[in-house]
């Protein structure tokens, strides 16, 4: 953990070596997601609501999805770029050090520039929490935290899965971006607004629905859902176990071929 913090400081130090570029990156990243959200807000304003969800309710799901996505992008950039590290031999370098490989990969990159988007996500989330029509009680706050954690775990697992594929092939990485970036877009709205088959993929295969939809139904008291709906983000842990399993298998087989 200490090592991770120190690596982070080092990355920040490297980034601010180029001051102008650094400031521009932060502003650009903040603007990019802000603009996208303003765009959908304008649409929402003219529709009033989507599928019975108010603006604040939608923003709550958007905020949770964005927050999970941006934190993993910020802290897990090393995994995101792992295919490059396999290609340029950084992985070999890491293997010659007496530390855990996963930790070292995480330490290898850190994007402080994403802080702009992180601020966006926090602002949206806070705005939604305070304007949404929910009677907050202890359990509901707990469910909200669970949703946020679930979102982080889920995006992180997708990133880990993407990185794992680099052990077998370093091509076609864009496909995994469809799942992570696309997943963020999809889960920015309650998945009930989509077609059934599409919603099913994002519930049973990649469990975004468990993070954003079922607990949301509980929070908003829609359709009298049972109380355990609030706990569904726990499912993401299973997804994480699977992806870290794949990661470990990949790491093992890399060592045996070394290609």
């Amino acid at each position: 953990m200490l090592l991770y913090l120190k690596s982070m400081l080092m990355h920040i130090k490297c980034d601010i070596e180029y001051k102008v570029s650094f400031i521009l990156t932060v502003i650009a990243s903040a603007l990019s997601s802000l603009l996208a959200i303003i765009g959908s807000l304008i649409l929402l304003k003219s529709f009033g609501s989507i599928d019975g969800y108010t603006v604040s309710e939608i923003l709550l799901t958007t905020g949770i999805a964005l927050f999970g996505h941006v934190t993993t992008e910020m802290f897990g950039r090393g995994l995101d770029h792992f295919h490059k590290q396999v290609k340029n031999g950084l992985l070999d370098r890491l293997l010659t050090r007496p530390r855990n490989i996963t930790l070292q990969v995480l330490c290898s990159e850190f994007e402080i520039g994403k802080i702009g988007r992180l601020v966006d996500a926090i602002v949206i989330l806070l705005y939604a929490i305070f304007t949404v029509n929910v009677d907050w009680n202890f359990y509901k706050v707990f469910v909200l935290l669970l949703m946020i954690c679930g979102s982080i775990i889920l995006f992180f697992s997708i990133l880990l899965l993407k990185a794992s594929f680099s052990f077998w092939t370093i091509e076609g990485m864009e496909f995994m971006n469809i799942i992570s970036d696309g997943g963020r877009e999809v889960s920015s709205y309650p998945i009930s607004i989509y077609e059934k088959w599409f919603a099913n993929i994002f519930t049973y295969i990649i469990p975004f629905g468990c993070v954003n939809y079922f607990p949301l139904l509980y929070l908003l008291d829609k359709g009298n859902v049972p109380i355990w709906y609030g706990l569904t983000p726990i499912v993401t842990i299973i997804f994480m176990l699977i992806s870290s399993g794949v990661w470990k298998i990949g790491l093992k087989q890399y060592a045996s071929t070394g290609s």
């Binding site: 120190k6 080092m10 130090k13 490297c14 340029n88 007496p98």
Partner: peptide
């Protein structure tokens, strides 16, 4: 490794040395 540096490109080598101390 001749081609794969362990030094951080944008900071002085001394900073890299201190990080290596923590790694090892």
């Amino acid at each position: 490794f001749g081609q794969r540096s362990q030094l951080w490109w944008d900071v002085p080598p001394d900073d890299s040395f201190y990080l290596l101390r923590d790694i090892y």
